[in-house]
Simulated scan of single mutants.
Amino acid sequence: MSSTKPLPAALKRWAEQRIGPVVSVRDASHSWDRSRVWDLEGGSGVHRYLKVSPSVKFFTRESRAYRHIVPALGHTRAPHLIDSRAQDLVLLLTAVPGAPVKELGLDTAQWRTVHQQAGALCARLHEAGELDRGDRVKAEASLSAAADGAEKYLARAGDRLDHDEQQLVRDHAARLRRVGPVPVGYIHGNNQPRNWLWSTSGLALVDFERSRPAGRVQDFVILATTQWADHPDREKAFLRSYGRELSDAERHALRCLSALDAVNCLAWGPDNGDAEVTARGRRTLDRLMKEDRP
């Protein structure tokens, strides 16, 4: 369990210059060591969030997303950016109602409703404006870029994968390069129930530090390897409100991306003490190995 992270006094002063006096501060960080997020309560009882990004890359992605992409989701469907300061990698955000979906103990019908709303929000995000030339180049190269990461993940995972499993990952990386064109757009990048907030107002998305131009199918990898693997009704509800079924190329890409996600999980999860991520990687890899056997 990580220790509580105090809000630096200089950042509190900076926030108060923009939102007025802060009467209480709560550490709202994830258990990940580099996560730094605080819930700031103002004198009127209004809550805002102050987030310090873990890297320049994540700050750049998230601040850009809040300015140019996230507003397409609608007023109550995501936080809005109040201000940011690049030298400190800090963002000041409004709060949205709700609690993380994974903590709510939803029943079968409620899970379908959540996935239905998630599909609609994902469609809005993916279609949030035309990609400029530079973003389109990045998006169209995103599958090849993902394949390029295979050897790095394999090296980091080491003997957590046996020879046959390593070969499966390499085979799927090679297949990913041959998938061909898939629809592109702006993706969330960490699209999963941990970042879905549910309330009586409906669903909201949070945490856009991995948002970027990419193949849209990349936003479905975590869902496909967790939620949808055992609950095809949730996938059906999601895609119905998303507005279309996945193409054959996207289905093929999703399988290849799942193999890469598995080795990434097995590289990152044990090193960071994340049993859930580790289990996701092992389960996906076991499934792919079983399905690939003649």
Rank of each mutant, 00 (worst) to 15 (best):
S2G: 08
T4D: 14
P6H: 07
P6W: 11
P8W: 06
A10H: 12
W14Q: 02
E16R: 02
R18E: 09
G20F: 08
V23E: 13
V23S: 12
V23G: 11
S24F: 05
V25G: 07
V25P: 02
R26Q: 14
D27H: 06
A28F: 11
A28K: 06
A28W: 12
H30L: 13
H30I: 03
H30Q: 09
S31E: 13
R36C: 11
W38F: 09
G42T: 15
G43L: 10
S44F: 09
V46G: 09
Y49H: 08
Y49N: 04
F58Q: 13
T60Y: 02
R61Y: 04
R61C: 06
S63V: 13
Y66G: 04
P71K: 10
L73G: 03
G74F: 13
G74A: 14
H75L: 11
D83R: 09
L89M: 15
L89R: 15
L91S: 04
L93R: 01
T94G: 12
P100V: 07
V101N: 01
V101L: 00
K102G: 00
G105V: 06
A109L: 11
W111H: 15
W111N: 08
V114N: 03
Q116V: 03
G119I: 03
L121W: 01
C122H: 03
A123T: 08
R124L: 14
R124C: 12
L125W: 03
G129L: 10
L131W: 07
R133E: 15
D135G: 11
E140H: 10
A141M: 12
G149H: 09
A150P: 03
A155Y: 00
A155T: 10
R160W: 06
D162H: 03
H163L: 10
E165L: 02
E165P: 01
V169D: 02
D171S: 07
D171W: 05
H172D: 06
A174E: 15
R175T: 12
L176A: 05
R178A: 12
V179K: 01
G185Y: 09
G185W: 08
Y186H: 13
H188M: 05
G189M: 06
N190E: 07
N191K: 00
N191H: 01
N195L: 00
W198N: 04
L203C: 10
V206T: 03
D207Y: 03
F208S: 00
F208A: 02
R210V: 01
P213Y: 02
G215W: 01
R216T: 14
Q218T: 01
Q218K: 05
D219G: 08
D219K: 04
L223P: 00
L223Y: 01
L223W: 01
A224C: 07
T225L: 08
T225K: 04
T226V: 15
W228A: 00
A229Y: 09
A229F: 11
H231W: 14
R234I: 06
E235M: 14
K236D: 12
R240Q: 13
G243E: 08
R244L: 07
H252R: 13
A253C: 11
L254S: 07
S258T: 05
A259H: 00
L260S: 07
L260E: 04
A262Q: 00
V263N: 07
N264K: 12
N264Y: 05
C265F: 04
L266K: 04
L266Y: 05
W268I: 11
P270I: 09
N272M: 12
A275W: 09
E276P: 00
V277M: 05
T278E: 10
R280I: 00
G281D: 00
R282F: 04
T284K: 05
D292R: 07
R293H: 13
P294T: 14
